[in-house]
Design a protein around this nucleic acid. Structure first.
Lengths: 329, 329
DNA sequence: AACACAAATGACAGCGCTGTCAATTGGATT
DNA sequence: AATCCAATTGACAGCGCTGTCATTTGTGTT
């Protein structure tokens, strides 16, 4: 900054960070100079000198899924209101990229790290632990949280959802998913537990393709499912995108939903209530998850109290709409 | 870094940045120490000392829309491969937040700024110009680019799309949108031009609600549209989410698509081809946009050649599917 | 053995801010 | 008028790296 606009560097620093403590005269001169030069302070220098980054890091597996967009939205709202910059990094569902992302964030000396998932490389865990920054693991429940853990039991959600289908009298319940990330795998495992508990077979009823869950994939899978001799009488889709694709494909194939086949989604995305027929789903509370995570991070940073809860289960809620109904058999 | 692991700081720096130029013996000692301490270099210090941030800034209006997720995906792929960190900031469709975002990014001394849109506050323009970092404005075409501009004409896209509906024999063509951001407004303006050119009235045919475009909103608008005495025989929706909601609501209302009403979306989102009936739309090339932007940024940073193109029009493509058809009248 | 040259390592200063403490200024108080 | 105190302002050093140049070491050549 051209302190050639009359004053010492430190006064400029003060005027910019806390205008009130500088006299009006100087403040005005400084503001004029700042404006004239379109001066923007070097954050790297500021961070280095103050040893505060005023930044928090967030690691998500993808930006390509609305659930994380919603979650990030909530995080942003809380953090920006508190003067923190949010640094979002995408691990692309890879543990090694996640470890890399952690290094990047720690290198920036973020003041907290919020990370989706509870499975990390051993090195990633060490980095997080030794860094001594508050760590919040989210979306899942951990047996052994690094620090704070806010999530829901994906396995129980899969189990309970399957139970509702079984309770509706379905026996041949298909499970469809794309490339199984950790949370999808947990839901699948819940499904299998529920099936086994009711002495129902699941072998041959699980359809998985390596792509990420999309409407297109849902349509494609439903299409191949329909070519079999015995079509499932209910299908539990790993997320609502798959479910929507399945729903659409059923229409094309002349399969009636829910009369011929029940369809259950997951996540209760915004559109679920507005499809035709409307889509039953399992609501996960992304927004709340984001808010709780952000607030937990902030309390941990200012550590007013370390009576902080170490683990919060935000649960889930099964939403029954038109796409699932009692079996006619 | 505990150079208490035997060597000078500068050697650690070298070993970490360019292992090849350090002897195997030292390198090993250093790696061992780094591992032991879970040492992560302070990026702020590095950036300050080297006056390189190895970061590029991206400003998007929202994370809550897949088109930007797709776009960011492409940016990430190109930049991460080139060793740049991508810093994403969300302006939430606000010009003042955008200006703030620009300050944040310039403060971090990002080496290029990629920004969605071509309308900025005067101060934002000044900041960008005086900063001397390469600036890439995208998604729209600018009359007066700050630096590089890669986009498409939203107005022409709106115009041409409307033309195809007119060419199908439709006369009462509705236009529905949520809260009109700049690009939506441009498409609307294209629609009006096309209608006027064919001597068709558009007054009373434009329905706008202040929310962001969602499936829910599309259903809601279609519902209110259907309550009128004379329902439009075609509807141009500002994006595919609205169109999907409209499509679903038509089914609920017993309106046949396209027999009773044609529906045209925008952006050609992934699901458009898989709805039932499949959705006609206007393909915008987000992925290509992202790749071109990233590559333009990289060339500008290394400025191998400044024979760089200043403006690229990536165009759009009207995709006709089942939801639009010739009018029966 | 003497020399030249490349490779490996280190010393030093400085990037642009801010924490800390000292100096100055201008009333208010007695 | 002398004293005191709060409000302003500045001096200085240092945050943890890296650019630059100097020094040391090792190898090959004649």
């Amino acid at each position: 900054m051209a302190k050639l606009a009359n004053v010492s560097a430190i006064t400029v620093s003060r005027a910019l960070r806390n205008p009130d403590i500088v006299s009006p005269a100087l403040r005005q001169r400084i503001e004029a100079a700042v404006d004239k030069l379109a001066y923007v302070p070097n954050l790297a220098a500021s961070r280095l000198a103050s040893s505060r980054s005023h930044a928090v890091g967030v690691i998500v597996p993808t930006l390509y899924n609305v659930i994380f967009a919603e979650y990030l939205q909530a995080l942003h709202e809380v953090f920006l209101g508190s003067g923190f910059q949010v640094v979002v990094v995408n691990s692309r569902y890879s543990k090694s990229e996640e470890e890399q992302a952690i290094r990047t964030l720690l290198g920036q000396r973020v003041e907290a790290i919020i990370i989706v998932g509870v499975d990390h490389t051993p090195m990633a865990r060490r980095l997080l632990k030794q860094s001594r920054v508050p760590v919040i693991e989210t979306f899942e429940l951990s047996e052994d949280p690094i620090d704070i853990n806010i999530g829901l039991s994906q396995t129980r959600a899969g189990f309970d959802a399957t139970q509702t289908l079984i309770a509706n009298g379905h026996q041949k319940i298909g499970f469809v998913l794309g490339h199984p990330d950790v949370r999808a795998a947990a839901r699948l495992s819940g499904y299998k537990q529920a099936m086994e508990q009711s002495n129902l077979a699941w072998e041959g009823l699980v359809t998985s393709l390596p792509q990420h869950s999309t409407v297109a994939l849902g349509a494609q899978i439903m299409n191949s499912l329909a070519e079999r001799k015995n079509i499932p009488d209910a299908v539990f889709c790993i997320d609502d995108n798959l479910a929507l694709g399945a729903l659409m494909q059923c229409r094309k194939l002349g399969l009636r939903v829910p009369e011929d086949i029940s369809i259950l989604g997951f996540h209760d995305l915004e559109f679920a209530a507005y499809t035709s027929p409307s889509l039953s789903s399992v609501a996960t509370h992304r927004y709340e998850l984001g808010q709780l995570s952000a607030n937990a991070a902030i309390s941990a940073i200012v550590k007013t109290h370390d009576n902080k809860e170490k683990q919060i289960d935000v649960g889930y809620k099964i939403i029954t709409r038109q796409s699932t109904a009692k079996s006619k058999t």
